[in-house]
Design a protein around this nucleic acid. Structure first.
Lengths: 189, 189
DNA sequence: GCATCTGCCTAATAGCTTTAGGCAAATAGA
DNA sequence: TCTATTTGCCTAAAGCTATTAGGCAGATGC
């Protein structure tokens, strides 16, 4: 029997593509096997189980977003950096909705530690270098930025902003403006 | 055979409790049947299918949150109202994580129209009465608030803030402070 | 008290997940 | 190059969930 050439990496990539097509929740070992023209059980030599597969897709998505974030931040500072980074999240979610959802998959501690999560946090802090925030306000601000980015993208993806004016793009720009203004005048306790 | 007294309502409530115990994704027609000491097929006289059940749980959660929100807003204005309303979301998610997730379940248009979604939007606008915002900035602000509330709660529930100082409660308070400050000095285009 | 309705049941189909064990293709060693 | 081992994909099987069809008996209406 000819071998299909399965590997963790190929399965993970194909899983990510599948997620973007049908949604992360609908990513299934069976469908993946079907796409490789292979029997389901065969995948279990490469991937521990369904959870493992999903974890790998999540890690891939986190890496990809971190890479894009790093590229966006290079040579930028202040509001410029903030806006570019914000767009990285939003654009990624629009281009790769399944992967984006995957990135929110709850990772177990080991996977989380090995993930690009730390890079994301570092980049947020790098953006805040353009603003004058000491601890613990810096941490509060990091959490706020993470919340806004994730929250907005998540609501937008769910279609919450698509049935009313103004355009979502406009709100997004104005929200980034607002965040910039807020960070410049952050109210200290 | 003694009847179990199944109804849509009881199934929905039990489904919501199940969601809080094991997670919304793990809510299953089978498990629900098990809890009622009844065969799986029996549920299908009361609920169209699994999707229908989840939709009902989502609608219940949205109602409950809207009710709490309304109670919190009564007699409050300005920052007071903002903080109380924010806490409604956060507290609800902490008390009822499964229901909270359910509330984010993607509803089809008919269900969405019949949901408490509109009440949520109205309450957000009511909060903004305490600030001086004209359209379209008011809509931008509503979207920002929704994003921050949902984003923060979602990240917090995922445990993103639980492994580092400062305390999540502190960040939450300071973020509400920051939002209040931002709304009072909202940057107009 | 009888007829109807309704609620829960049995039975059956179908899909996904996961484990165990087997054969053959690829690879490594002599 | 021939053999030995590893490794990749397969068959088989069990268990779970979802969903539909059809049946019997308890509840309800006249």
């Amino acid at each position: 029997m000819a071998r299909a050439g399965l590997t963790k990496e190929r399965l993970t990539r194909a899983g990510a593509e599948l997620a973007d097509e049908v949604g992360f929740e609908q990513v299934t070992v069976s469908e993946l096997a079907r796409r490789f023209g292979v029997k389901v059980a065969s995948l279990y030599s490469h991937v521990k189980n369904s959870h493992d597969l999903k974890t790998r897709i999540a890690l891939l998505a986190l890496e990809e977003m971190a890479d894009r974030g790093a590229a966006a931040l290079a040579g930028r500072a202040g509001k410029d950096a903030l806006a570019a980074f914000a767009d990285v999240y939003r654009d990624y979610a629009r281009e790769h909705p399944g992967r984006y959802t995957a990135a929110r998959f709850r990772l177990d501690p080991e996977a989380a530690a090995a993930s690009a999560g730390a890079r994301h946090a570092q980049m947020m802090r790098a953006i805040l270098r353009g603003y004058d925030l000491a601890e613990p306000d810096q941490t509060h601000a990091v959490r706020l930025l993470g919340s806004v980015f994730h929250g907005y993208v998540s609501l937008e993806t769910a279609g919450s902003f698509s049935h009313s004016a103004p355009d979502s793009q406009e709100s997004w720009s104005r929200i980034v403006d607002a965040l910039d203004a807020l960070l410049r005048t952050w109210p200290t306790a």
